[in-house]
């Protein structure tokens, strides 16, 4: 099968891959670019582990072919934190509130929550649960994750208030 060139920006860096059209964006990120932070749970759009930002919007990277991302900007979980000492505020919130146990689903949750808070900066608990419904976690029972989103929303508002004040 003919392979095709894909040029895209991943986590701020220009990247190129040569892939079969049937290869999903998730597999392109993991296998061709070595970015294994994006996890694959179900590979058919149910679990949300593979969620990435595509041109700023959260999408399931298992429901897109890599060739479709040509010319796009992708942010995977690796792009959220520069290094282990400087986690993003959503990641910090997950860490502080025990928003994870085994951690398999966490990259998807962290990306989804990052996008969710852009849309809904001051969410109610109902909005939080609605916003989390596209990601599955088999360990936590979600309580810690809900706490993490609450904390992240607060941290985010405080940070914005500081920078604007």
């Amino acid at each position: 099968m003919t392979e095709m060139d894909v040029n895209l920006i991943v986590n701020g860096e220009r990247c190129r891959a040569r892939v079969e059209p049937r290869k999903t964006l998730a597999d392109l990120l993991r296998e061709d670019l070595g970015l294994t932070g994006t996890h694959l749970g179900c590979e058919h759009g149910v679990c949300g582990s593979c969620t990435v930002l595509l041109d700023g919007l959260a999408v399931r990277s298992c429901l897109m072919f890599g060739v479709q991302a040509d010319g796009s900007e992708v942010t995977s979980v690796e792009g959220l934190a520069g290094d282990p000492e400087s986690l993003s505020l959503v990641q910090r919130a997950f860490q502080e509130t025990h928003g994870l146990q085994c951690g398999f689903c966490t990259p998807g949750f962290v990306i989804s929550v990052t996008a969710f808070l852009e849309d809904v900066p001051d969410p109610t608990d109902e909005q939080i649960r609605d916003g989390l419904s596209g990601n599955l976690c088999r360990c936590t029972g979600y309580q810690g994750i809900v706490h993490a989103v609450r904390l992240a929303a607060r941290l985010r508002r405080e940070e914005r208030a500081e920078t604007s004040g």
Binding site: G48, T51, A58, V59, R60, L63, A115, F116, D130, G134
Partner: peptide, 12 residues
Amino acid sequence: APHIGHFQIRNR
């Protein structure tokens, strides 16, 4: 619209 899948689905 809010009933269609999840927001990640609705983005695509």
